[in-house]
Write a protein that binds this DNA or RNA. Sequence first.
RNA 1: GGCCCCGUAGCUCAGCUGGAUAGAGCAGCAGCCUUCUAAGCUGCUGGCCGUUGGUUCGAAUCCAACCGGGGUCGCCA
Length: 594
Amino acid sequence: MFQDRLQSILVPALQNAFKQAFDHELDGRSIGFQQTRPEFEGDLTINVFPFLKVSGKGPEQTAQTIGEHLVSSVDVVARFNVVKGFLNIVISDAYWLGFLKEAASEDILALPSTGKKVMVEYASPNTNKPLHLGHLRNIFLGWSVSRVLQAAGNVVIKVQVINDRGIHICKSMLAWQKFGNGETPASSGLKGDKLVGKYYVVFDKAYKQEIDGLIAAGKSKDEAEKEAPLLLEAQDMLRRWEANDPEVRALWEKMNGWVYDGFNATYARIGVTFDKNYYESQTYVLGKEDVLKGKERGVFYEKDGAVWVDNTAEGLDEKVLLRRDGTSVYMTQDIGTAIKRFEEFPGLSKLIYTVGNEQDYHFKVLFIILKKLGFAWADELFHLSYGMVDLPSGKMKSREGTVVDADDLIQEVVDAARAVTTELGKLDDFTDEEKTVLFEMIGLAALKYYLLKVDPKKRMLFDPAASIDLQGHTGPFIQYTYARIRSLLRKAEMNGAMQTGATTTLIPEEKAVIKLLHQFPGVLNEAAAKLDPSSVANHTYELVKTYNSFYQSVPVLKEEDGSKRAFRLEMSASVATAVKKAMWCLGIDVPERM
RNA sequence: GGCCCCGUAGCUCAGCUGGAUAGAGCAGCAGCCUUCUAAGCUGCUGGCCGUUGGUUCGAAUCCAACCGGGGUCGCCA
């Protein structure tokens, strides 16, 4: 609920009213406050239908009685009106003005500390391929959730899992060794992750050629795929890696190093950081002991020499946790890694995995297993499951080369921002360096906002044209409003128009803005509870849109009445502060001018 | 086939802990810059809220079935 402030005043008054008028103990939670629809006068509305049984009267009379009690007992209630079963309450201007005074002097989007420590895992790239659009949704979402949780008073530990070992990276390594002629990022000018990704593709092509050759020589497709020399070599390389072969390890270190340089360049450009990296090469051995211990305790069982968990009672299936040869599966290391994290970070109260919804089942099983192993914190694990990103042409498929590369995409939005901004020609006195910073800021705002405004759970369509749009419901639109307010405030300071005055009444355009500011802490709180930044994105848009409407029709600096002018400047400053903080929660920077 | 998610305006999305005539943006049409940044503002056009049934004083919102779309069900990761 976003009206906490008012509700803490109104609920007791309502309870009191019910007691006096109807001799009834009202449960505070049963009152549903809603926003009054714009066509009626009022700031808050209570639907009295649910209370008719209690009052024993008709809707109009019930509403009338409650309204009268409120007006006489609570001074924030200025007046009320009744339309059918709806009690529309008008809150006094004094209340709103009082709230704005607070908003001017403190950060209303800094919620009180919860004392909780939360870990958010929000990136888990493989080291054989560069980042793509899907990773961007993942990263922006996880980063934003981290920020929202921080704003909501939590201590957040941001972590990344790097899948740095396995057959995939061996394929890249082998192809580079065979066909690379010693090419390096320095020699080729290619970004490290792109270079390694290139050899993954090289491997795939050569491998397919071998398969075709074998099929032509009479092998079945299945046989050919399994027997192709390149694949056997890659598998051999993986075995040598596991046996700590110095030559393979050195190559692996070198190529992964290139990839990290590439990833880090992208992370730096989009402005994200990690407090800790987990490397699969170190965690893949974890979990085995825990599974074996679980087997001894009867949590798991053995069948055909493998170790299984039975989740049929939970409506799921049986699942292998250790193969017949005693080696681990994916699940095993996730079990071990979760346990390790809670050991490493004592007092950790929540662990959030930002991972696509194709792994819903995996996490469901993982959490059940950890619960069965008896870890109390298993209830605090959360899979922040986000929907896939589709293209107008359909699904992104790496095999079909329809994947949108992250770096290319970022460059495109920044270029678009440059083109539009240059066209508008407002930056004559900017230095080239300032312009570059601004174009990055605007382009990234467009991209991040585009991906974050949608409910994370839902699958979404990525429309390239819409993503670089700077008008309407976009990040740059919000930035623009911020820049305009900052401009107002700079001018006000120069003119000395910033003096304070005593305004006592509000016009509707002002009140509309203040009400949205007033709701904002509740929106943030809910976003933190639901791990959903899209509500912050949408509310910011709502606020900014309403402010623009005010700005367009109501003079601020040009207002002649000094106290009104001062008040509007103060309100504008509060909007700017809230917008900046909200955008911070989304990982988006705002410019002083644009 | 089992399980999970989704289906709201031409397109992309809000709204979903049940409440008044369902909201934005884009696209289309018509206005507003001698005035604080027009990346803006104002208005118009556009909806059997997938279908059917149920619960309720009241359903886009809850429940069931069906239709349509997606995901997932390896001793892969």
